[in-house]
Structure formats: structure tokens, C-alpha cells
Design a protein around this nucleic acid. Structure first.
Length: 223
DNA sequence: ATCCCGAGGG
DNA sequence: CCCTCTGGAT
């Protein structure tokens, strides 16, 4: 359900206008993780939980020099991986999950990253958010990527009321064209970092001002 | 609902 | 000091 008096149809129209503005502001946006293979993107996205991707990019260089592929992680000592990823936080869980997932890739997926949401989310450490990043970035399959930024902006923009990522995802799937699910998600993340920050959003500088319930739209004025 | 966890910013 | 960062598993 969408906010207040706005109908689904009105929300869809507003979503299109928001998308057009974001596209103009951030042309050619994709993933800001600097990866060399689907496997590396998978590992980096696991590391990105509650951590900036700037930091993940820093850690990734040395990490993949030691462990470039799933086979290398299978041979790794848990402690060594923990040390290598320490600064990303949650390092015990993440190290354990990366090694366990690497073993599953070797044993059940011929060493390759699987290409469906069902298979991906069976891997330890891979939830819907991580799976949808991989689907969109590597396998050309649209998916709404709900992280802390996407969720926050979806709520601020009035595209959902929900706190739970799974429900936010469903609400956004209802108002965004499927073709643009991945791109729209990435743009919200970027806009969330650059302008619509969690603490002090720069509403004065925001190109979406007139389309946002917080600052514009007295009562559904068409623009 | 709670835990895992470090680093940077205001 | 407190909040936040591209979450996921129990």
C-alpha cells in the first residue's frame, strides 16, 4: 500500500518522474563495488553488510590477491580470512559464511555463482539483498535491492510505509517498472549517500524536492 | 526481536 | 558520545 490518499497509479506516475530526474542526475550508475568476477562481487556484497563499500573496496584488493576464487577460500584457514576482512565488521560471521559458501559453490555449482534467486539465497550469508545485487549486476535479471539506503528513501518518498525489507521490496515492485528495478535501486542508494542522508538530508539541494512528501506536493498537485 | 562487529562522521 | 554504514541468521 502507498501512503495516505495517493493511489497506486499516482504513485507509479510519481515513481516515473522521480526515476527520470535521478537518471538525469546520475547517468550510467551501477554498482560501486570494484569487482573482477561474479564470485568476487558475491564476496564483496557479503562483506558490505553494515559497512561502506568504500571500505569493502579497500579490503578487497589484498583479500583477492590471497583468495581469488572459491577454491582458494576452501583451502583457507578461518582465522586468516577473519584477519583479512576484519575492518568490515561482523568478521567472524562473514569469514565463516564466505568459506562455507565457497565450499557449496565447488561441491554443488561447479565452482560458479548460481543464477537464480532461490539458489543464491540458499548460500550462507546471501540474503535477498545480496542475491538481487548479483542478479542485476551479473545475470541481467531485474531485482529490487533493498538495503538501508533504498529502504529509507522509499519511505521518505512515500513509496512504502514498511520497515521490513521484504515488504519494502514488494511495495517498490508495485510502483516501479520491472525493467528498471536494478537501476532504480542503485540510484536511490547513490542519492541516499550524496543527498538524502540518514542524519541530515540536504533537502534544499535535492532534485526530487517537489516530488517528495516531506518537502513538496501540498496535496497531490500534478507537476 | 536480537545478535553479530569495526570504523568514520557529526 | 551516538548514529550510521548497500544485512543475514537465529
Amino acid at each position: 500500500m502507498v501512503q495516505g490518499e495517493e493511489t497506486i497509479k499516482e504513485a507509479q506516475g510519481r515513481a516515473r518522474r522521480v526515476f527520470a530526474l535521478l537518471q538525469k542526475e546520475y547517468p550510467e550508475i551501477r554498482c560501486t563495488l570494484d569487482y573482477g568476477s561474479p564470485f568476487q562481487l558475491m564476496v564483496m556484497t557479503i562483506l558490505a553488510a553494515q559497512c561502506t563499500d568504500a571500505r569493502v573496496n579497500i579490503v578487497a584488493g589484498p583479500l583477492f590477491e590471497q583468495y581469488p576464487d572459491p577454491a582458494a577460500f576452501c583451502r583457507a584457514k578461518l582465522k586468516d580470512v577473519e584477519v583479512a576482512i576484519h575492518s568490515t565488521g561482523f568478521f567472524r560471521q562473514k569469514a565463516k559464511n564466505i568459506i562455507a559458501t565457497s565450499k557449496i559453490l565447488i561441491e554443488k555449482h561447479k565452482g560458479e555463482v548460481p543464477t537464480t534467486l532461490e539458489e543464491l539465497t540458499e548460500l550462507p550469508g546471501v540474503g535477498r539483498k545480496t542475491a538481487n545485487v548479483l542478479l542485476g549486476e551479473c545475470f541481467n535479471t531485474p531485482g529490487v535491492i533493498v538495503d538501508t539506503h533504498c529502504g529509507r528513501l522509499a519511505r521518505r518518498l512515500g513509496f512504502t510505509q514498511a520497515e521490513e525489507p521484504r515488504q519494502v521490496e514488494r511495495d517498490l515492485m508495485g510502483v516501479w517498472p520491472k525493467k528498471h528495478w536494478t537501476g532504480f535501486s542503485h540510484m536511490l542508494v547513490f542519492h541516499g549517500r550524496a543527498v538524502c542522508a540518514s542524519r541530515s538530508p540536504k533537502c534544499e539541494l535535492c532534485s526530487l524536492r517537489r516530488h517528495c512528501p516531506r518537502t513538496g506536493l501540498p496535496q497531490g498537485t500534478p507537476k
